[in-house]
């Protein structure tokens, strides 16, 4: 039983003459891991920011968790989680304080926060570090913690903007295990990345080139269509025609 939680129809964002995102159309189903691929400057981050309510679309329509991106951004915000490209926890706060702060911002009750924090720390093997300042943690742990904080309030959808930048392959693998666990709980994952091995982990991927979605399918079908051995080759074939290269 498929149920779309994100529907996007001809969504466009212009900055002056520059069309960052050009009439993109797609749907994302509940519990799906949706990979949003593209070279730097292809328009991924812009598209994602429109869906999060950070950026106003120029034209087209979209709903996130059933709410309109033009008029119901407040409702959208209550139903999504967000993890940005750059690391976004407070370094001078401890692990527990960071969790408590973000959970509090989403209006969770104190006892619930307390109980869930213990559970989460246990799951991440971070219990001994509960009162450590975040700046003392290794990068990989910080990323995992940031992701866990982003889904702490059990959002319907979580947006991840290149979450694994600068992380070693083992930690990346562990990170993806967390993503799978979240997806199993029914949280829809919308993830941008430029690591092609990560694309293989997604249920479906879309590939953006110069602001347009050039391909959208399961990794297996994409490889078949483009007669490629890996997603890397698929991507290279599509991105070769790209004119833009930088954000």
């Amino acid at each position: 039983m498929k149920e779309a939680v994100i529907t996007v129809n001809k969504l466009t964002k212009k900055f002056g003459d520059f069309i960052a995102t050009n009439e993109v159309t797609f749907e994302v189903d509940k519990g799906e891991i949706f990979g949003f691929l593209g070279a730097n400057g292809a328009g991924k981050t812009t598209a994602m920011r429109m869906l999060c309510g950070l950026s106003m679309p120029s034209s087209g329509s979209a709903t996130v968790a059933g709410f309109d991106v033009y008029k119901q951004t407040e409702k959208i915000k209550q139903n999504i989680g967000y993890m940005s490209q750059k690391f976004s926890l407070y370094e001078d706060l401890t692990v527990t304080e960071n969790i408590r702060f973000y959970a509090g911002i989403y209006g969770m009750a104190r006892p619930a926060i307390k109980e869930k924090t213990a559970q989460l720390l246990n799951q991440l093997n971070l219990t001994p570090e509960a009162n450590t300042l975040v700046k003392a943690l290794p990068l990989g742990w910080k990323q995992k913690l940031a992701f866990s904080v982003a889904i702490f309030h059990e959002p319907k959808i979580v947006f991840l903007d290149e979450p694994t930048g600068g992380v070693d392959p083992i930690t990346r693998r562990e990170f993806w295990n967390l993503i799978y666990q979240a997806a199993e709980r029914g949280i829809t994952i919308f993830v941008t990345t430029h690591y092609m091995d990560e694309a293989e982990y997604c249920n479906r991927v879309s590939i953006m080139v110069d602001g347009k979605i050039e391909a959208l399918d399961t990794p297996r079908n994409l490889k078949k269509t483009y007669n490629a051995k890996s997603m890397d080759e698929v991507f290279l074939q599509l991105a070769r025609g790209a004119k833009r290269s930088d954000d």
Partner: peptide, 13 residues
């Protein structure tokens, strides 16, 4: 600067 602003803007705060 430390990018937490973006996360706060996405939150219902």
């Amino acid at each position: 600067e430390i990018n937490t602003m973006e996360v706060l803007l996405v939150s219902p705060l």
